[in-house]
Amino acid sequence: MRFVTVSGPPSSGKTAVIIKTLEHLQKAGQKVGVVKFDCLFTDDDELFRKNGIIVRKGLAGALCPDHYFVSNVEECVQWGLQEGLDVLVSESAGLCNRCSPHIREVLALCVIDNLSGIGTPKKIGPMLKAADVVVITKGDIVSQAEREVFAARVHMVNTKARLLHVNGITGQGSFELSTLWTEAEDTATVEGKKLRFSMPAALCSYCLGETRIGSDYQMGNVRKIDLDLPTGFKTDGAPGASE
């Protein structure tokens, strides 16, 4: 089974790109499936189903979505094998921009859109930087110059990736993308494989459900912004307040 991890900022067009691309593989008689990762809610599974794609969804809920992804990815691969899929796609939103679900030896795709602003390629870091293929969407509504500038910015962050423009509405470019998916490596398991980039770290009181604000309630992996505050400043009181 060929396995592709798809990531990208929210609303960049991941679902549309996946549906349009899988359509070409379905036409070629391949059995395709998607595992959709999200945080609190998604009804994209309906969209996939409507297009004849076998789908499962995973909602991270209170957990870090990225940690949730990596804790479940092997199970997803086993599910795909059990369903007899030819191609399995995992879709996860890079919600914190530090996310990167990409796994070594598994085809990694990042979807990013022309409207997100030219600073975005630098901001989203690992999920773009570690991708094999970068798909740029919404190219039909911005000028040629902006497309070129945006593509150049993407190239600066990831010089090795193959860059493709895909229109999620008309499907322009999706056939071309589908040819790359059929070249993905055959995957029987991801057990023991490594992430391309470590997950964002967090182990503090808030991870355990703390809701109150202030230094007194903060434990574990906590880091402060350097704001040049006067000495004696306490984050849970007025400047200089002492007990």
Binding site: G139, I141, V142, S143, Q144, E148, A152, L163
Partner: peptide, 15 residues
């Protein structure tokens, strides 16, 4: 990114 064969201009495009 440097070698795209086709540049596009259409009515729907905006800055």
């Amino acid at each position: 990114s440097e070698h795209k064969l086709v540049a596009q201009l259409s009515q729907n495009m905006n800055f």
